[in-house]
Protein backbone atom coordinates (compact mmCIF):
# COMPACT_ATOMS: atom_id res chain seq x y z
CA UNK A 1 0.00 0.00 0.00
CA UNK A 2 1.43 3.33 -0.90
CA UNK A 3 0.97 6.64 0.84
CA UNK A 4 -1.61 7.94 -1.63
CA UNK A 5 -3.78 4.98 -0.98
CA UNK A 6 -3.58 5.32 2.80
CA UNK A 7 -4.43 8.99 2.44
CA UNK A 8 -7.43 8.10 0.38
CA UNK A 9 -8.59 5.41 2.78
CA UNK A 10 -8.40 7.92 5.62
CA UNK A 11 -10.24 10.53 3.55
CA UNK A 12 -13.02 8.13 2.61
CA UNK A 13 -13.26 6.73 6.12
CA UNK A 14 -13.99 10.18 7.49
CA UNK A 15 -16.51 10.99 4.78
CA UNK A 16 -18.28 7.66 5.18
CA UNK A 17 -18.24 7.97 8.95
CA UNK A 18 -19.60 11.53 9.07
CA UNK A 19 -23.32 10.78 8.61
CA UNK A 20 -22.96 7.93 11.09
CA UNK A 21 -21.24 10.22 13.58
CA UNK A 22 -23.97 12.86 13.29
CA UNK A 23 -26.92 10.54 13.72
CA UNK A 24 -25.22 8.50 16.45
CA UNK A 25 -24.38 11.63 18.48
CA UNK A 26 -28.04 12.60 18.30
CA UNK A 27 -29.23 9.18 19.33
CA UNK A 28 -26.67 9.08 22.13
CA UNK A 29 -28.01 12.27 23.70
CA UNK A 30 -31.54 10.96 23.26
CA UNK A 31 -30.70 7.65 24.92
CA UNK A 32 -28.79 9.37 27.72
CA UNK A 33 -32.07 11.07 28.61
CA UNK A 34 -33.72 7.66 28.82
CA UNK A 35 -35.48 7.65 25.47
CA UNK A 36 -34.83 4.98 22.87
CA UNK A 37 -35.79 6.32 19.45
CA UNK A 38 -35.67 3.65 16.76
CA UNK A 39 -36.98 6.16 14.22
CA UNK A 40 -33.51 7.29 13.09
CA UNK A 41 -33.90 5.90 9.59
CA UNK A 42 -37.24 7.68 9.11
CA UNK A 43 -35.91 11.00 10.43
CA UNK A 44 -32.80 10.71 8.26
CA UNK A 45 -34.87 10.11 5.15
CA UNK A 46 -37.09 13.08 5.92
CA UNK A 47 -34.00 15.22 6.46
CA UNK A 48 -32.56 14.01 3.19
CA UNK A 49 -35.65 14.74 1.13
CA UNK A 50 -36.62 18.06 2.71
CA UNK A 51 -33.02 19.28 2.63
CA UNK A 52 -32.72 18.30 -1.00
CA UNK A 53 -35.94 20.05 -2.00
CA UNK A 54 -34.93 23.21 -0.13
CA UNK A 55 -31.51 23.26 -1.80
CA UNK A 56 -33.06 22.44 -5.17
CA UNK A 57 -35.33 25.48 -5.11
CA UNK A 58 -33.07 27.94 -3.29
CA UNK A 59 -29.78 26.84 -4.81
CA UNK A 60 -28.27 27.12 -1.34
CA UNK A 61 -27.03 23.88 0.26
CA UNK A 62 -26.63 25.52 3.67
CA UNK A 63 -30.32 26.40 3.67
CA UNK A 64 -30.83 22.78 2.65
CA UNK A 65 -29.02 21.62 5.78
CA UNK A 66 -31.06 23.98 7.96
CA UNK A 67 -34.28 22.63 6.53
CA UNK A 68 -33.01 19.06 6.90
CA UNK A 69 -32.46 19.68 10.61
CA UNK A 70 -35.95 21.21 10.88
CA UNK A 71 -37.50 18.19 9.17
CA UNK A 72 -35.68 15.91 11.61
CA UNK A 73 -36.96 17.96 14.54
CA UNK A 74 -40.52 17.90 13.21
CA UNK A 75 -40.38 14.13 12.93
CA UNK A 76 -38.86 13.79 16.39
CA UNK A 77 -41.69 15.88 17.84
CA UNK A 78 -44.19 13.37 16.49
CA UNK A 79 -42.19 10.71 18.29
CA UNK A 80 -41.91 12.81 21.43
CA UNK A 81 -45.63 13.48 21.58
CA UNK A 82 -46.53 9.81 21.27
CA UNK A 83 -43.73 8.32 23.36
CA UNK A 84 -43.25 10.96 26.06
CA UNK A 85 -46.54 12.84 26.37
CA UNK A 86 -48.79 9.88 25.65
CA UNK A 87 -46.37 7.39 27.25
CA UNK A 88 -46.59 4.89 24.43
CA UNK A 89 -44.10 2.07 24.04
CA UNK A 90 -40.90 3.65 22.74
CA UNK A 91 -39.81 0.71 20.63
CA UNK A 92 -43.12 0.48 18.82
CA UNK A 93 -43.32 4.25 18.35
CA UNK A 94 -39.76 4.41 16.99
CA UNK A 95 -40.38 1.61 14.52
CA UNK A 96 -43.56 3.30 13.40
CA UNK A 97 -41.63 6.55 12.91
CA UNK A 98 -39.16 4.78 10.64
CA UNK A 99 -41.92 3.24 8.54
CA UNK A 100 -43.78 6.55 8.45
CA UNK A 101 -40.66 8.50 7.49
CA UNK A 102 -39.72 6.04 4.77
CA UNK A 103 -43.12 6.30 3.15
CA UNK A 104 -43.62 10.02 3.65
CA UNK A 105 -40.18 10.88 2.25
CA UNK A 106 -40.86 8.71 -0.80
CA UNK A 107 -44.18 10.49 -1.28
CA UNK A 108 -42.78 14.00 -0.90
CA UNK A 109 -39.73 13.25 -3.01
CA UNK A 110 -41.44 11.40 -5.85
CA UNK A 111 -41.15 14.26 -8.32
CA UNK A 112 -37.55 15.00 -7.28
CA UNK A 113 -36.41 11.45 -7.92
CA UNK A 114 -33.16 11.51 -9.87
CA UNK A 115 -32.81 15.31 -10.04
CA UNK A 116 -29.47 16.72 -9.05
CA UNK A 117 -27.97 19.80 -7.37
CA UNK A 118 -24.53 21.27 -6.82
CA UNK A 119 -22.99 19.45 -3.89
CA UNK A 120 -21.68 21.01 -0.70
CA UNK A 121 -18.16 22.06 -1.71
CA UNK A 122 -15.07 20.81 0.05
CA UNK A 123 -13.15 23.56 1.77
CA UNK A 124 -9.67 23.99 0.43
CA UNK A 125 -7.57 25.27 3.29
CA UNK A 126 -4.59 25.74 1.04
CA UNK A 127 -1.09 24.63 1.94
CA UNK A 128 -2.00 22.36 4.88
CA UNK A 129 -3.87 20.19 2.40
CA UNK A 130 -0.55 19.14 0.91
CA UNK A 131 0.77 17.65 4.16
CA UNK A 132 1.42 13.98 3.40
CA UNK A 133 -1.03 11.41 4.70
CA UNK A 134 -3.16 13.60 6.98
CA UNK A 135 -3.42 16.71 4.80
CA UNK A 136 -6.35 15.72 2.64
CA UNK A 137 -8.27 13.67 5.22
CA UNK A 138 -8.10 16.41 7.86
CA UNK A 139 -8.00 19.67 5.96
CA UNK A 140 -9.81 19.18 2.66
CA UNK A 141 -13.21 18.01 3.84
CA UNK A 142 -16.53 19.79 3.52
CA UNK A 143 -18.03 22.09 6.14
CA UNK A 144 -20.27 19.40 7.60
CA UNK A 145 -17.29 17.24 8.53
CA UNK A 146 -15.83 20.11 10.55
CA UNK A 147 -19.24 20.88 11.99
CA UNK A 148 -19.52 17.26 13.16
CA UNK A 149 -16.17 17.63 14.95
CA UNK A 150 -17.28 20.82 16.66
CA UNK A 151 -20.50 19.13 17.75
CA UNK A 152 -18.57 16.14 18.98
CA UNK A 153 -16.38 18.32 21.18
CA UNK A 154 -19.38 20.29 22.40
CA UNK A 155 -21.27 17.16 23.40
CA UNK A 156 -18.17 15.67 24.96
CA UNK A 157 -17.75 18.76 27.13
CA UNK A 158 -21.49 18.92 27.81
CA UNK A 159 -21.40 15.52 29.48
CA UNK A 160 -17.92 15.92 30.94
CA UNK A 161 -18.39 19.25 32.62
CA UNK A 162 -21.50 21.43 32.76
CA UNK A 163 -24.62 20.78 34.82
CA UNK A 164 -26.67 20.31 31.65
CA UNK A 165 -25.08 16.94 30.99
CA UNK A 166 -25.82 15.82 34.53
CA UNK A 167 -29.48 16.81 34.15
CA UNK A 168 -29.82 14.79 30.93
CA UNK A 169 -28.18 11.80 32.60
CA UNK A 170 -30.43 12.13 35.63
CA UNK A 171 -33.48 11.98 33.37
CA UNK A 172 -32.09 8.80 31.83
CA UNK A 173 -30.85 7.10 34.98
CA UNK A 174 -33.66 7.76 37.41
CA UNK A 175 -36.35 10.19 36.25
CA UNK A 176 -38.38 9.87 39.47
CA UNK A 177 -35.52 10.96 41.68
CA UNK A 178 -34.60 13.64 39.17
CA UNK A 179 -38.12 14.95 39.17
CA UNK A 180 -38.30 14.97 42.94
CA UNK A 181 -35.16 17.06 42.96
CA UNK A 182 -37.01 19.54 40.78
CA UNK A 183 -35.72 18.64 37.34
CA UNK A 184 -38.15 19.14 34.44
CA UNK A 185 -37.69 15.55 33.22
CA UNK A 186 -40.23 15.72 30.41
CA UNK A 187 -38.76 18.93 29.07
CA UNK A 188 -35.26 17.46 29.20
CA UNK A 189 -36.43 14.38 27.33
CA UNK A 190 -38.23 16.47 24.72
CA UNK A 191 -35.16 18.61 24.13
CA UNK A 192 -32.96 15.51 23.85
CA UNK A 193 -35.36 13.94 21.38
CA UNK A 194 -35.41 17.14 19.33
CA UNK A 195 -31.63 17.27 19.34
CA UNK A 196 -31.60 13.67 18.12
CA UNK A 197 -34.05 14.61 15.39
CA UNK A 198 -31.96 17.56 14.26
CA UNK A 199 -28.84 15.37 14.08
CA UNK A 200 -30.64 12.65 12.13
CA UNK A 201 -31.98 15.28 9.76
CA UNK A 202 -28.49 16.68 9.23
CA UNK A 203 -27.11 13.19 8.66
CA UNK A 204 -29.78 12.56 6.05
CA UNK A 205 -29.01 15.94 4.53
CA UNK A 206 -25.35 15.00 4.39
CA UNK A 207 -26.24 12.07 2.15
CA UNK A 208 -28.52 14.00 -0.22
CA UNK A 209 -26.63 17.31 -0.24
CA UNK A 210 -22.97 16.47 0.15
CA UNK A 211 -22.16 12.82 -0.38
CA UNK A 212 -24.35 11.95 -3.35
CA UNK A 213 -26.13 15.17 -4.35
CA UNK A 214 -29.40 13.60 -5.44
CA UNK A 215 -32.59 12.31 -3.90
CA UNK A 216 -33.66 8.75 -4.35
CA UNK A 217 -36.14 6.84 -2.29
CA UNK A 218 -34.65 4.97 0.65
CA UNK A 219 -31.23 6.43 -0.01
CA UNK A 220 -30.06 6.05 3.58
CA UNK A 221 -29.96 2.29 2.98
CA UNK A 222 -29.94 1.29 6.63
CA UNK A 223 -27.47 3.84 8.00
CA UNK A 224 -29.95 4.83 10.71
CA UNK A 225 -29.86 1.28 12.01
CA UNK A 226 -26.08 1.22 11.97
CA UNK A 227 -26.12 4.35 14.13
CA UNK A 228 -28.31 2.60 16.69
CA UNK A 229 -25.84 -0.26 16.80
CA UNK A 230 -23.08 2.30 17.08
CA UNK A 231 -24.46 3.75 20.31
CA UNK A 232 -24.41 0.30 21.89
CA UNK A 233 -20.99 -0.36 20.41
CA UNK A 234 -19.76 2.83 22.04
CA UNK A 235 -21.33 1.69 25.32
CA UNK A 236 -22.97 5.13 25.61
CA UNK A 237 -19.59 6.91 25.84
CA UNK A 238 -19.25 10.05 23.73
CA UNK A 239 -15.58 9.50 22.91
CA UNK A 240 -16.17 6.03 21.62
CA UNK A 241 -18.95 7.22 19.31
CA UNK A 242 -16.44 8.98 17.10
CA UNK A 243 -14.09 6.02 17.15
CA UNK A 244 -16.98 3.71 16.32
CA UNK A 245 -18.36 5.92 13.53
CA UNK A 246 -15.03 5.98 11.75
CA UNK A 247 -14.45 2.30 12.44
CA UNK A 248 -17.80 1.47 10.88
CA UNK A 249 -17.03 3.81 7.99
CA UNK A 250 -13.66 2.13 7.56
CA UNK A 251 -15.23 -1.33 7.52
CA UNK A 252 -17.75 -0.29 4.91
CA UNK A 253 -15.14 1.04 2.48
CA UNK A 254 -12.48 -1.54 3.20
CA UNK A 255 -14.20 -4.32 1.30
CA UNK A 256 -14.34 -2.03 -1.72
CA UNK A 257 -10.67 -1.11 -1.41
CA UNK A 258 -9.59 -4.72 -0.99
CA UNK A 259 -11.55 -5.77 -4.05
CA UNK A 260 -9.73 -3.11 -6.03
CA UNK A 261 -6.53 -4.96 -5.15
CA UNK A 262 -7.97 -8.22 -6.34
CA UNK A 263 -7.99 -9.70 -2.84
CA UNK A 264 -10.74 -12.23 -2.61
CA UNK A 265 -12.19 -11.76 0.83
CA UNK A 266 -15.93 -12.15 0.63
CA UNK A 267 -17.35 -8.66 0.53
CA UNK A 268 -20.53 -9.92 2.12
CA UNK A 269 -18.54 -11.13 5.07
CA UNK A 270 -16.67 -7.84 5.41
CA UNK A 271 -19.92 -5.93 5.27
CA UNK A 272 -21.08 -7.76 8.39
CA UNK A 273 -18.08 -6.60 10.45
CA UNK A 274 -19.71 -3.57 12.10
CA UNK A 275 -22.60 -5.71 13.29
CA UNK A 276 -20.34 -8.48 14.53
CA UNK A 277 -18.36 -5.88 16.46
CA UNK A 278 -21.57 -4.55 18.00
CA UNK A 279 -22.69 -8.00 19.10
CA UNK A 280 -19.27 -8.69 20.61
CA UNK A 281 -19.44 -5.45 22.59
CA UNK A 282 -22.97 -6.26 23.73
CA UNK A 283 -21.94 -9.72 24.88
CA UNK A 284 -18.96 -8.25 26.67
CA UNK A 285 -21.07 -5.61 28.41
CA UNK A 286 -23.89 -7.95 29.36
CA UNK A 287 -21.56 -10.59 30.77
CA UNK A 288 -21.52 -8.71 33.99
CA UNK A 289 -24.76 -6.99 34.92
CA UNK A 290 -22.97 -4.62 37.29
CA UNK A 291 -20.76 -3.58 34.43
CA UNK A 292 -23.72 -3.01 32.14
CA UNK A 293 -25.26 -0.74 34.79
CA UNK A 294 -22.24 1.50 34.59
CA UNK A 295 -22.85 2.15 30.93
CA UNK A 296 -26.46 1.80 29.90
CA UNK A 297 -28.85 4.51 31.12
CA UNK A 298 -30.98 2.67 33.66
CA UNK A 299 -34.30 4.13 32.58
CA UNK A 300 -33.61 3.65 28.87
CA UNK A 301 -36.74 2.80 26.94
CA UNK A 302 -39.03 2.98 29.97
CA UNK A 303 -42.02 5.28 29.69
CA UNK A 304 -42.25 7.69 32.59
CA UNK A 305 -44.73 10.32 33.67
CA UNK A 306 -44.79 12.69 36.53
CA UNK A 307 -47.53 11.22 38.69
CA UNK A 308 -45.27 8.30 39.67
Amino acid sequence: MDLDLLTNILYLTIRTGTPLLLVALGELVCEKSGVLNLGQEGMMLMGAVVGFIAAFYSGNVYLGFAMAACAGIAMSLVFGFVAVTLNANQVATGLALTIFGTGLSAFIGASFEGKTITALPTLAVGFVETIPLIGRPLFAQDAMVYFSWILFIAIYLFFKQGRGGLKVRAAGENPTVGSNLGLPVLKIRYLSIMFGGAMAGLAGGYLSLAYTPLWTENMTAGRGWIALALVVFASWRVGRIMLGAYLFGFASIMHLVLQGFGLSISSNLLATLPYVATIVVLVFLSKNIERLKQFEPMALGKPWHKTH
Binding site: L12, Y211, T212, N218, M219, A221, R223, I253, G260, A271
Partner: peptide
Protein backbone atom coordinates in the same frame (compact mmCIF):
# COMPACT_ATOMS: atom_id res chain seq x y z
CA UNK B 1 -11.01 -3.42 -12.34
CA UNK B 2 -14.27 -4.77 -10.97
CA UNK B 3 -15.73 -3.96 -7.57
CA UNK B 4 -18.89 -5.69 -6.37
CA UNK B 5 -21.09 -3.62 -4.10
CA UNK B 6 -23.65 -6.38 -3.51
CA UNK B 7 -26.60 -4.08 -3.94
CA UNK B 8 -28.58 -2.83 -6.93
CA UNK B 9 -29.16 0.45 -5.28
CA UNK B 10 -27.21 2.29 -2.57
CA UNK B 11 -25.99 5.65 -3.91
CA UNK B 12 -23.50 6.16 -1.08
CA UNK B 13 -21.94 2.75 -1.54
CA UNK B 14 -21.77 3.19 -5.32
CA UNK B 15 -20.03 6.48 -4.75
CA UNK B 16 -17.56 4.98 -2.27
CA UNK B 17 -16.72 2.29 -4.80
CA UNK B 18 -16.18 4.90 -7.49
CA UNK B 19 -13.95 7.04 -5.27
CA UNK B 20 -11.94 4.00 -4.22
Amino acid sequence: KVIWVNTWFDPSKEREAAET
